[in-house]
Amino acid sequence: MANITVHINGVPQTLDVEPRLLLVHLIRENLNLTGTHVGCDTSSCGACTVLMDGRSVKSCTVYAVQANGKEVTTIEGLAHAGQLHPLQEGFKEEHGLQCGFCTPGMIMRCVDLLERNPNPTEEEIRWGISGNLCRCTGYNNIVKAVEYAAQKMQAAEVPAETVA
């Protein structure tokens, strides 16, 4: 067993784990955060995507011990004080989901995407989510949802010259 401390959604969690425990199972089974899904279990579909130190990773292909000392953010960590994250709001407003299975992973991937590229083109969004599979929507509304969030997040950043 290995003793690890992982900061999940800002809260330090110290646990004894088997080294072979996958991060996605730590999240779902040890911590009961079931918003992160297991899809293909082969790092193909992206349903298990979470942020590790701010970057999207497929948690079915990371051992929990690799997250020792790191910050992990799951879909449960995005909304604050009842206020949805702009990406969550975008997926709701633009009908970016049908069955919802891919949605948490899709959103976590897009948090990283918008962090690095706040104003992506449609092509950059499609390229950016190329490792996340959705079998319902045909992706069009997902792209619109990400565009919605990008606009909202940019509008929230008050340009310096307008500050009195």
């Binding site: 790092s43 992206g46 995507t49 970057r55 999207s56 990773v57 991937r109 190329s130 490792g131 996340n132």
Partner: peptide
């Protein structure tokens, strides 16, 4: 190579 999330690690 793979996809953006895989390239992160």
């Amino acid at each position: 190579i793979a996809d953006p999330s895989v390239r992160n690690l």
